[in-house]
Amino acid sequence: MSHLLVLNAGSSSLKFAVFDRALAEICRGAISAMGSAPRFQLETADDQSEKHAFSGASLSMDDALAYVLKRLADRFPNLRIAAIGHRIVHGGVEFTKPAVLTSQTLAKLRELEPLAPLHQPYNLAIVAEAQKHFPDAVQIGCFDTAFHANRPKLQKLYGLPRALIDEGMISYGFHGLSFQFISGQLRKRFGCEAGGKVIVLHLGSGSSLCAMQNGHSLATTMGFSPLDGPVMATRCGTIDPGILLHLMLRKGMQPQAVEDLLYRKSGLAGLSGTSGDMQSLLADTSDDAQETLDYFVLSVSRQIGALAASMGGVDHLVFTAGIGENSAPVRARLANAAGWLGLELNEAANDSGAVDIADKNSRIGCLVLKTNEELAMAEGMATLLEQ
């Protein structure tokens, strides 16, 4: 039997998963903190695990991939990799479904690197290395922007000259693989209507929200780039463009320095002055940390209000991703802020990690659903390979 390998390369991590052709998961894992204290973790479908800390201070992406592939070969000698799926953050206007990564396709995707500098270069760099290890495997790109491609045109526009809109300066939206998976889970739970009018909160180091109607993306908070929306770990979120003009025209900052500021030195880390990690901030009793948490709740709540308006109401809120799935205190604060929508939280259910955390008297539903971007990618790969 042949298998599907899924790779998700970031600036400091490499996540992976292996599936058989029936889409049963064989294993998953990651190498994290590659730039400081690299750690390897592997979990198998039969609940076995493996962990390893590297002795060096850093690990290159090529070396990380080589290590992952060696561990997979040692642990699963009968693996036959037929296709490798790559999470690619930005697919632009053209790539709205999984695609075989030819040299022409990769050239087009490299042109989008400035729009997602924290992700796109790393997503693409690993493709060539994967081809070296598996020259006969099909390399497939799975795009985070694809789920949002069929939103109403009005939802994609900015108040810019039409010529710039026609050049592709529109809202694309991101985290589409996560939202796609959650949409499928909602269909399994509620049928074809997928819960009706739903706002899904993908909250992690990068955060975005998606308004779904009957399981389809109607509006989302990230736009032309992954900077927009609520404040994130190191990204600023929604900001007055006048600030950027001021930084460049009045303070003399170069464009590259502004880019570095907005993507890597802002957000929760910049505002708190200490950390962009949510758990660290929750444990920090300083005034700056508490104000940063308050601003996070406010920034997410503003987006909930905007998305509710775009749909004319809300039937369910869904929490997912690292913070959404694992931080009961953050869920509680956001649910309390969404009380105007008629949401009442079942605190005991929220604290216990239940799926349904709405109180029985709540006028709207509230769920915590685990996302699985790797399975969403494998499903897209399987569909493409069957064509």
Results as ranks from 00 to 15, higher is better:
Pro121Thr: 11
Glu129Gly: 03
Gly92Met: 11
Phe134Leu: 07
Pro135Asp: 15
Val127Phe: 03
Cys142Glu: 09
Leu101Met: 11
Phe95Thr: 09
Arg162Phe: 11
Ala83Trp: 09
Gly141Tyr: 08
Ser103Gly: 07
Pro121Trp: 06
Gly91Met: 13
Ala128Cys: 03
Glu113Cys: 14
Lys97Arg: 15
Leu157Cys: 01
Gly92Arg: 14
Leu109Cys: 03
Arg151Trp: 04
Gly141Lys: 05
Gln104Cys: 03
Gly168Glu: 09
Ala130His: 03
Leu164Gln: 14
Val89Arg: 01
Lys153Leu: 13
Glu113Tyr: 00
Leu157Lys: 13
Ser103Trp: 00
Val93Gln: 13
Leu112Cys: 09
Leu115Tyr: 11
Lys97Leu: 06
Ala149Asn: 07
Asp136Lys: 12
Ala99Asn: 02
Ala99Arg: 12
Gln139Arg: 11
His86Glu: 06
Gly159Lys: 01
Ser103Ala: 14
Asp166Ser: 11
Arg110Thr: 06
His90Met: 10
His148Leu: 05
Pro121Cys: 13
Glu113Trp: 00
Gly159Val: 01
Asp136Trp: 00
Arg87Ser: 06
Leu154Ala: 13
Gly141Val: 07
Asp144Arg: 03
Leu112Gln: 04
Lys108Glu: 07
Asn150Val: 07
Arg87Asp: 04
Ala83Val: 06
Ala128Tyr: 09
Arg87Thr: 01
Gly141Glu: 08
Lys153Val: 06
Gly92Leu: 10
Gln139Gly: 00
Leu106Gln: 15
Arg87Asn: 05
Ala137Leu: 09
